[in-house]
Design a protein around this nucleic acid. Structure first.
Length: 557
RNA sequence: GUCCCUGUAGCUCAGUUGGAUAGAGCAACAGCCUUCUAAGCUGUGGGCCGCACGUUCGAUUCGUGCCAGGGACGCCA
């Protein structure tokens, strides 16, 4: 509702002021929501931006503009939606919502319910979000956990505002890492059968390798070293990948994260496809030979140096199948592709960007989000981690320690590219220090009010609100009205942080309302009915927001 | 050495793409439950927005240069 109104304000303002700029190009009319509510509900800086062009002081321009805008709004029949337009200090023109607009917000929220905030903004455009994509060489770590929380929430939001978002996991089931994995399991299996070999430094050291070896031996009914040696390395590799992918899928599922597509390197970027893409690049003159290797001239697209795609020994670098994989994504019809990577892949962005551009995609078609690491703390003490030694906190441990809700919320509490401190002890605490509960508590409170109202036979209205004029009520309605705009902002920022922040603010406004205004009052049934509607609307927005984040909305706490 | 990110209250961080008196949570202090859940609410204190120039009506935001911290830079994946 506010999105449309804002658009209308922009258009009408533009039309009203056109005559002042005869011939010259008018600056773009921007209408934003001021941070300070004493500056109105919407605000434009058009007068400030025009002072230079019109060669008159800002306040004078603003006053003239303001008159013209008032006349324009009258003509457009917007006076019932906007109660007041005024000029403030340096030259801002501020718009104030009318009671009719506030009523509209509430009615729409109550009407749309779980669809409130939903829009067709994305026009069903196909986008892809690839995240986690951890190599199947061990359980997921906290780094993956944050990516999972972010990727899932982003996809939820994008789908809600009308995109057709596909959540995708790329399984690296080939290459060196997988060979090492296979070898690790093989060596542990030998050890179990009594033949202890030296276990190389670069093999996976974790305890889970033993468990896999046991499962493998039992599954194949292997009793002797000879029987084990008769089986191929390929067989053990396939087992290991399959086993760990099941582990990973289970972990993600318990975290509330599911994927639409699981892509496998072995299927998408096999020898044939690689050759095809390579020759396509060659025909476009992106590939040259030097010192026996094949190089991609990625510098042409801004990379620091050219990159090898095929080594002098004839094998491919990791880059090559990745090119094929991304070509495959675009062939499947995605207009925009998001990749969530850890900070260690930062240097890889330019390279991949060059690759997709060389294959005919615009630069903006690939959006890499670097998801910064989370440092875990327990009571203020940093928890040291080492992936190599297999000493790290897994996703599973985090879930078990603090629960899914707190974990997902904490991972989203900072900008994606900002470093995150995650105190496990704090996330577990049921105290005001913990922001998850603050929001969930607001949601639970709406149910207790409703229950109380039921006891005295009071119920909510659905339309025609006239009595909600207290400051706490007006603030809450406006906050509710902002929800759809916040979701669009998340898209623009490619981040979910704005929604997290918004829900905390909404909860704060709700708690203040709850504290200062009594809802259920048998002496004032009409007012109670309207306030109950406001309670319902608050619940709808909190629930919708938390659902998009993947956090539950308890009815009781 | 080259490139990228970060630098805002005691701590952890926001700051709506250049706007109005720079905000929130935590921590500290002082208050509020015979009334819908006190996991809540109210109030107080706390700032060289790393530093210096520049761009303009206007800079925490953009540019350049320094300072400090972190990270990435392989015919690895």
């Amino acid at each position: 509702m506010l999105i449309r109104l804002r658009q209308k304000i922009i258009e009408t303002t533009q039309k009203s002021l056109k005559s002042f700029f005869d011939g010259q190009t008018m600056p773009l009319v921007e209408v934003e929501v001021p941070a300070d509510k004493t500056h109105g509900d919407f605000s434009t800086n058009i007068a400030l931006k025009s002072t230079k062009l019109l060669k008159r002081p800002p306040l004078e321009v603003a006053a003239t503009f303001c008159d013209a805008i008032r006349a324009g709004f009258q003509k457009a029949g917007m006076n019932d939606k906007i109660a007041k337009i005024e000029v403030l200090k340096p030259g801002f023109i501020n718009f104030y919502l009318s009671p009719v607009s506030l009523c509209d917000i509430l009615e729409q929220t109550l009407r749309d319910k779980e669809n409130y905030g939903k829009s067709d903004f994305g026009k069903s455009r196909k986008i892809n979000i690839e995240f986690v994509s951890a190599n199947p060489t061990g359980p997921l770590s906290v780094a993956h956990a944050r990516q999972a929380a972010v990727g899932d929430a982003l996809a939820n939001i994008f789908n809600f505002i009308g995109f057709s978002a596909t959540k995708e996991y790329y399984v690296n089931d080939e290459g060196n890492q997988i060979n090492i994995l296979g070898n690790s399991v093989y060596l542990r299996a030998l050890e179990r059968l009594g033949q202890k070999e030296e276990f190389p430094e670069d093999c996976y050291q974790g305890q889970y390798i033993y468990e896999m070896a046991d499962v493998y031996l039992a599954g194949k009914k292997i009793k002797t070293v000879q029987q084990l040696q008769a089986l191929s390395q390929e067989d053990i590799r396939q087992f290991a990948v399959g086993y760990l992918m099941t582990v990973i899928k289970d972990e993600l599922k318990d975290f509330g994260v599911t994927f639409d597509v699981w892509s496998h390197q072995s299927k998408i970027a096999g020898e044939d496809q690689i050759k095809k893409t390579l020759s396509e690049l060659q025909s476009k003159r992106h590939i040259y030979e030097k010192e026996g290797a094949l190089w991609f001239n990625t510098t042409q697209y801004g990379d620091d140096k050219d990159r090898v795609v095929r080594k002098s020994d004839g094998s491919y670098t990791y880059f090559m199948p990745d090119i094929v994989y991304h070509q495959d994504k675009f062939r499947r019809g995605f207009e925009k592709v998001f990749n969530l990577w850890g900070p260690d892949h930062h240097g890889y962005i330019q390279r991949l960007s060059a690759a997709i551009q060389s294959l005919g995609q615009p630069k903006e078609a690939l959006h890499v989000l670097i998801v910064q690491l989370a440092t875990l703390y327990r009571d203020g003490q940093e928890i040291q981690m080492s992936t190599r030694r297999g000493q790290y906190i897994t996703l599973r441990e985090v879930i078990e320690e603090v629960g899914v809700d707190a974990a997902r919320f904490f991972f989203l509490m900072r900008l994606v590219e900002a470093h995150l401190d995650f105190d496990l002890a704090l996330a577990k605490k049921e105290t005001p220090e913990n922001p998850v509960y603050y929001i969930q508590y607001a949601h639970a409170r709406t149910y207790s009010v409703e229950a109380k109202a039921k006891e005295v036979n009071l119920s909510a209205k659905a339309t025609g609100f006239k009595n909600l004029q207290e400051a706490e009520e007006v603030d809450l309605i406006k906050k509710i009205g902002h929800f759809p705009m916040i979701l669009l902002f998340c898209w623009r920022q490619a981040d979910v942080f704005a929604l997290v922040n918004y829900l905390q603010e909404l909860a704060a406004v709700f708690h203040r309302f709850y504290d200062r205004q009594r809802v259920v009052d048998v002496e004032k049934p009409e007012l109670s009915a309207e306030r109950l509607a406001l309670i319902n609307a608050s619940r709808i927005v909190i629930a919708n927001g938390l659902r998009l984040l993947g956090v539950s909305s308890p009815q009781k706490m």
